[in-house]
Amino acid sequence: MNATIRRGSVHDAGAVAGLHALSWRTAYVGIVPEQALGDGLPEERRALWELRLAAEYGEPANTPELLIAEQAGRTVGFAYLVPQPDGRILLDNLHVEPGLTGGGIGRALLGAARSHVARQHPGADLYLEVLRDNSRAVAFYEREGGLRTAEQEGVFPGGFVLPEYEYTWTAADRVQSTS
């Protein structure tokens, strides 16, 4: 893998936004409407990440966590964890630079996310939502022990609706895997 995982900050907004847009344009072709991947995507992602990373969330338990994977000082992946009102932690994003997928960076980010949740939110389940038709991501989450816990419709900016799966890693799974 050869990537280092570190905590991110507002200074990472540009790199994360660029990688996020590139990942969407690679992984979601033929899955999401073409207009959602258009010319405005990089700017929209940059505004989103600047807002998210500069926001004040109050209590540390309510504060999202950005994890960055770097190789030679370059951002090659990221994960974003968001505490939810129901006590679970949403893995809102996990993206790896196209061309580097399959090399262990995603696995390292998911492992770091699970470790962060175990340390900072003991007893909380980690979950994510993935587009049903993103077969590569679905296969990855299943290989990594995610349990499919729901099927739903996701509503995206621009108003389009797509089928999603929810995958969960429970706190009980973490305890069993470390025993």
Rank of each mutant, 00 (worst) to 15 (best):
E43L: 12
E43W: 02
E43D: 13
R45I: 09
R45G: 05
R45S: 08
R46N: 04
A47C: 07
L48N: 01
L48K: 03
L48D: 01
W49F: 08
W49R: 08
E50G: 03
E50D: 05
E50H: 02
E50I: 10
E50C: 04
L51K: 15
R52S: 15
R52M: 14
R52D: 12
L53V: 13
A54T: 14
A54K: 12
A55K: 13
A55M: 07
A55Q: 15
E56W: 05
Y57A: 08
Y57V: 06
E59Q: 14
E59V: 05
E59L: 13
P60L: 11
P60N: 09
P60T: 12
P60S: 13
A61G: 11
N62R: 15
T63Q: 14
T63K: 15
T63N: 09
P64Y: 04
E65P: 00
L67I: 05
L67V: 07
L67R: 02
L67Q: 04
L67N: 06
I68M: 04
A69P: 01
A69H: 08
E70M: 02
E70V: 03
E70I: 02
Q71S: 11
Q71L: 07
A72H: 08
A72V: 01
A72W: 07
G73K: 06
R74P: 00
T75N: 05
V76N: 01
G77E: 11
F78Y: 13
F78H: 01
A79W: 02
Y80G: 04
Y80R: 05
Y80N: 05
Y80V: 03
L81C: 11
L81Y: 11
V82Y: 01
V82T: 07
V82Q: 08
P83W: 02
P83R: 06
Q84L: 00
Q84A: 07
Q84F: 07
P85M: 03
P85G: 01
G87Q: 11
R88Y: 03
R88T: 12
R88L: 00
R88K: 14
I89F: 03
I89W: 06
I89S: 08
I89P: 04
L91P: 11
L91A: 12
L91E: 09
D92W: 00
D92T: 02
N93D: 12
N93R: 11
N93M: 12
L94R: 01
L94A: 06
L94T: 03
H95A: 10
H95L: 09
H95P: 03
H95G: 00
H95C: 06
V96E: 12
V96G: 10
V96F: 06
V96L: 07
E97R: 10
E97I: 01
E97L: 15
E97T: 08
P98Q: 07
G99N: 12
G99I: 10
L100Y: 02
L100R: 13
L100M: 13
T101A: 07
T101K: 12
T101V: 13
G102K: 15
G103T: 12
G104M: 11
G104E: 06
G104W: 13
